[in-house]
Amino acid sequence: MKEKILLLLLFFLPFAGSLMAQVPISISKNTDMNFGTIAASSGGGTVLLSTSGSRTPSGGIILPSFTGTVTAAQFTVTGEPGYTYAITLPANFTLSESEVGPASMVVNAFTSTPSATGILTAGTQTVFVGATLNVGASQTTGSYTNTTGFQVTVNYN
């Protein structure tokens, strides 16, 4: 009888174990997106900001000689060499101007280089993101910004 009790007690003794986790890939922001200085006519239009940082106006948009700061967004993806990843960009985003009066502009048609997927050949890769700024007819003058930022997500494959 003593043997059976001893075996039951051993069965319920705690065993030490270890826990581990690995995050194989990460993304960090290097540079914010900035469309720079633009001038809009009463008809409005768009400004396409490419992933290389160049701008293309359409409609009633004029790009003045004083461009201000113009940059595509830049991110660094890091992880194990050889890992592949998928990039997810937002569908649209709103910039707001609140000093002169409540006004907004929509940013959409986000693009990235590389587009959709990438591979970490040396354990790191730079991703550039551009988009299109939609300027309304008689858009309110001001500095349009956001406080939350837009989301760029990478998922390893």
Results as ranks from 00 to 15, higher is better:
15 F>R: 15
134 N>L: 06
109 A>S: 14
137 A>D: 09
77 V>M: 00
141 T>H: 15
50 S>D: 08
74 Q>D: 08
108 N>P: 14
92 N>W: 06
19 L>A: 15
70 V>L: 07
124 T>I: 04
53 G>E: 09
141 T>Y: 14
147 T>R: 11
45 G>Y: 00
130 G>A: 00
67 T>G: 11
120 L>S: 07
96 S>L: 10
106 V>K: 14
18 S>D: 08
115 S>M: 04
36 G>E: 13
18 S>Q: 15
75 F>P: 00
62 I>A: 11
28 S>A: 12
149 G>Q: 07
104 S>C: 05
95 L>V: 02
79 G>N: 04
108 N>H: 14
61 I>L: 06
76 T>V: 12
46 T>Q: 00
76 T>H: 06
117 T>K: 14
76 T>Y: 07
117 T>G: 13
80 E>P: 03
111 T>W: 07
87 I>F: 04
95 L>D: 03
18 S>L: 15
61 I>Y: 02
21 A>Y: 10
15 F>Q: 15
25 I>D: 01
15 F>G: 15
48 L>R: 09
13 L>C: 03
22 Q>S: 07
68 G>K: 06
123 G>N: 10
22 Q>G: 09
120 L>C: 01
86 A>Y: 15
126 T>M: 04
105 M>L: 04
107 V>E: 05
131 A>F: 08
104 S>F: 04
25 I>K: 03
29 K>I: 13
85 Y>Q: 06
20 M>N: 13
76 T>E: 04
135 V>H: 05
136 G>V: 04
124 T>A: 13
144 Y>N: 06
42 S>G: 09
94 T>H: 02
148 T>S: 11
108 N>R: 14
118 G>H: 03
122 A>F: 07
50 S>Q: 00
27 I>V: 01
82 G>D: 06
42 S>A: 06
107 V>Y: 03
92 N>L: 11
43 G>F: 06
33 M>E: 12
130 G>H: 06
73 A>M: 00
57 P>W: 05
104 S>H: 00
125 Q>E: 05
38 I>D: 02
128 F>P: 05
114 P>D: 01
98 S>Y: 12
30 N>T: 10
21 A>G: 12
68 G>M: 01
150 F>T: 07
89 L>V: 01
131 A>E: 03
55 R>F: 09
74 Q>V: 10
36 G>C: 03
97 E>Y: 05
36 G>W: 02
113 T>Y: 08
73 A>S: 01
82 G>R: 08
138 S>T: 10
133 L>D: 03
72 A>D: 01
21 A>P: 01
35 F>H: 07
127 V>A: 00
121 T>F: 08
33 M>D: 11
15 F>P: 09
95 L>C: 07
